[in-house]
Design a protein around this nucleic acid. Structure first.
Lengths: 195, 195
DNA sequence: AAATACACATGATAAATGTCAATCTATTTT
DNA sequence: AAAATAGATTGACATTTATCATGTGTATTT
């Protein structure tokens, strides 16, 4: 069973508004369930991100690959988050990112056109969007500040405090990449901070 | 003369909508002109950011100070940008940032309460807000990606390409701080990249 | 005009982080 | 169960960046 309830709860929580039965009907009509298997790509660099997906189950990484072939993880996404490259999705431009499933996933996906036509007019949804983009801006500013002013060790400690479930759920090489460190460096940081 | 025209143009450009004479009247009634002299603080760490200001003239830095007394610049703001700590302004929580004028400034400022009551209901304004937060998200993601995946030299080159006027307008020690580097390191990077 | 503060550069050295290679373990696949 | 793969750790060494001290020229302030 595809759990639309998670999506309803999410929208209602963030917006502080209630969804009517009609609203819910519109959601279930236009958001399509999709399964993505571990290691499968949701988006490839150079493609336009046609869909945005609400994650019902599973996790994914958003990353780039540099000239040396090294991955850099910009984002780790889990349940009750949105899976998309916002820039590509909204502007319909080719994406600079790859998005790949880290576990088997179940998402509810929708195209830009359908969001604009059917979903955005729902007040709870656009209210949710505003709150979401605020939260996003705040979180990204905090991460940016860490990035320019703290050492690897401090950034790691902050991540442990702010998102302890990330540490448990994802292997250390992914955490390292997310922090802008090599796996070797993170391994040594952890070793030293045990003292 | 306080240039409300710059604000009108900005809102209309970003939103793609036209402001009526009534709309403009609402803007001029609630946005209050304010002058800030060079080195004066617009916001101090620990205070709630009561106002958001539209920059008509001048420039400012948003920064933190670490335990060692070193400044870290999160944002450099110039004409036609908003001067505020969004987190503090929207959530009415004490700010982690300082905002200080780098030049004599002229801004149009307004409180959170007045925005919510009088300004947000103007369709062009809320449309502008959406576009602005999208642009912001995109720009911050790009900066974040640079930060985790590029060297100081690469980040500097990107800044030169993306915001050449910043390089001309601000001294190098501020640019260095914005890039997460010490002034000495940026000085050496520039020397080496002349080859 | 003198005094002060600021921006920038440079040398010497230290600290943080990256690179490459090897090894070990745990997990997944066959 | 065996084989293959992925993740984590460690050592040796290189590179990047920070730190501290100092000098110099230029604005700013007094």
């Amino acid at each position: 069973m595809h759990n639309y309830q998670a999506l309803f709860d999410y929208v209602q929580n963030l917006s502080g508004k209630t969804l009517s039965a009609d609203d819910k009907q519109i959601f279930t009509t236009h958001f399509k369930p999709k399964r993505i298997r571990k290691r499968q790509y949701f988006l490839q660099e150079g493609d336009v991100c046609k869909y945005t997906g609400f994650i019902v189950k599973g996790a994914a990484k958003t990353f780039t690959v540099d000239e040396k072939g090294h991955e850099h993880i910009l984002k780790l996404s889990v349940e009750n988050w949105w899976l998309t490259d916002f820039e590509s999705f909204y502007k319909l431009t080719p994406s600079r990112f790859n998005i790949e499933a880290l576990e088997d996933m179940e998402i509810l996906q929708i195209t830009h056109g359908l969001v604009e036509e059917f979903i955005k007019p729902i007040p709870a949804f656009s209210a949710m969007q505003n709150v979401l983009s605020q939260n996003n801006t705040i979180a990204t500013h905090k991460r940016m500040q860490s990035s320019i002013s703290q050492t690897g060790e401090e950034r790691f400690q902050e991540l442990v405090n702010d998102y302890p479930h990330f540490i448990k759920r994802f292997p250390q090489n992914l955490i390292a990449s997310y922090l802008g460190l090599t796996p070797e460096t993170l391994s040594r940081i952890r070793k030293n901070s045990l003292k």
